[in-house]
Write a protein that binds this DNA or RNA. Structure first.
Lengths: 124, 124
DNA sequence: AGTATACTTGCATTGTGACGCAAGTATTCA
DNA sequence: TGAATACTTGCGTCACAATGCAAGTATACT
């Protein structure tokens, strides 16, 4: 009995229902990932699994250095990367809770999805 | 021993490594969710957990009907909604595998993240 | 056939974001 | 103190996406 609420009768009613999903489905997060360059940078940082400087990262892609710096700052602003300034270099890294952030979205969706217990005829 | 690969020495090496994550971190998916109106529409459809027509859905939001139709088409094109045309009405619905899509991203990230087995001094 | 319904498409406007270049700031090193 | 390094910011250009309105298409209903 995952489903402890009544199904809304209409989309209008559904839109009024508050849920964890509302905050998790954050456009700001997705906007950060919507740019192909940024999504590649993020993938790169995840694979690296250690703090990397902008200079290092800029060597991955054929892009103006200032653009790389801006993209990384954008990713950090949306919480998809952590930034750590030490002296004159900024160390960017994928935060440990990044996977959890996506898993939370998945969980929130599941939470709102009625489990189809009636496949076959078990619920006669 | 989740980590069966060597850590890349540099972001440049990391960028070359192929991973499931590369295709899962799809900018097209995120671009669809990056618009606040669209993310609200999607949340609405998830909460509704049944097929809804454009007319029904348009009553949720203070937006031109044609825009709602366009947004829903965009979401469907990116695979975040399914569209089913019957007669003159189109039924949109959040697909059953939507949560799985986000969970797959989470899993792919975990797969690339070395498990920190050395907390404390166990690996001394 | 004619009308209403449900959606799609064309179009003009407007805003925003990606981009490169150049200049600026902050920190380190000699 | 001066120069090099590592980033940040300002600015102009360009492309594209969101929006509303109006017109078009496809389907159902009478």
């Amino acid at each position: 009995m995952t489903q402890v609420f009544k199904q809304p009768a209409s989309p209008k009613q559904a839109a009024r229902r508050r849920s964890r999903l509302d905050s998790l489905l954050d456009p700001e997060l997705f906007r950060a990932l919507a740019d192909p360059t940024r999504s590649k940078l993020l993938a790169c940082l995840i694979k690296c699994s250690r703090p990397c400087s902008v200079t290092e990262i800029a060597q991955c892609c054929d892009l103006d250095f200032s653009m790389v710096a801006r993209h990384l700052a954008t990713l950090a602003r949306s919480g998809v990367l952590t930034a750590n300034k030490q002296g004159r270099t900024v160390w960017y890294q994928a935060p440990p809770d990044l996977a959890a952030r996506f898993r939370a979205i998945a969980d929130a969706i599941d939470e709102l999805t009625p489990t189809d217990c009636c496949e076959g005829d078990c619920c006669g």
